[in-house]
Design a protein around this nucleic acid. Structure first.
Lengths: 145, 145
DNA sequence: GATACATCCTCCAGCTGCTAGAGGTTCAAG
DNA sequence: CTTGAACCTCTAGCAGCTGGAGGATGTATC
């Protein structure tokens, strides 16, 4: 019980909010930790490592579902790492698609901003381009990032 | 009443889902349209233009809040277009930040995938990197896209 | 022991931007 | 006049958290 962390300290060490940790527990991404007699959570090294893993994967843009898979794989050290590799490749593909899409947006936004002469909204290029899709040069058909 | 559109036809013309149009009405982004005696929505040109504007701005990644501002500006043709310009610039900055961030992720993911030798999960580079943040070369501190 | 007060607890609601479904009504064509 | 597609309202759900209310606990100090 010496090196046990409160949820607040665990949060600090991993750069996570307290509520987020409880949320991860609720959805089964983090295990139910030990509790004090009074019902407060206490965490050990294992949980610290696990949460660090989760956070790091989140920073790399993995979904919680993908992280769940990675954690499961990580728990079975004898299996082939094919699966983990596939998940990472999939993530890489998604990131590349998002970059391509955002680059198209950037082009269009830059053009809008560049052409704005700064007069009245009646002649604003920004608003005009938004009004008339046919003025766009790039493809940006899907919505979202 | 001749050239009035049903919600379904408006949806088709703008590439929007019917529910989404009703949602936009609910949050005040689209006006309450005329109704038939039986209570069905009927749309005219103005609404078609407005929805096209909204959809186009969404495709360019503007938030609904930003779109609301742009629509308000668009309704006041005499005012300076400074504000519209500022909104577009802000959007451009955000897109550029997201690109920079995703590029850092791409670098890291590529490295992970490249180094994976295809053995067992115990030695998997993908999992190892996720476990140990210090192995990362790039900054990717914020979460999300 | 008593007290103070930071931190913890659970539960619930809300964020963005839609999307889906249940259960019922209206419209237009034949 | 009947059929059937499209419409209506209402509610709930998705990801991934975040915040707050209202109350209990843990620890330091007196």
């Amino acid at each position: 019980m010496l090196d046990m962390l409160t949820i607040g300290n665990l949060a600090k060490k991993t750069g996570t909010k307290v509520q987020t940790i409880r949320y991860y527990e609720q959805i089964g991404l983090m295990p139910e930790p030990e509790r004090t007699a009074g019902g407060q959570r206490r965490y050990g090294e294992d949980e610290l490592d696990r949460l660090a893993f989760v956070r790091h994967a989140r920073q790399l843009g993995f979904t919680l579902e993908a992280i769940r898979e990675l954690l499961d794989l990580s728990d079975e050290p004898d299996r082939s790492c094919e699966n983990a590799d596939a998940i990472a490749r999939r993530q890489l593909r998604q990131v590349e698609q998002r970059i391509a899409r955002l680059e198209a947006l950037r082009t269009e936004l830059k053009r809008m901003v560049r052409e704005c002469a700064g007069g009245q909204t009646a002649d604003c290029r920004v608003l005009e381009v938004l009004r008339d899709h046919s003025e766009c040069l790039t493809d940006h058909d899907e919505i979202g990032a």
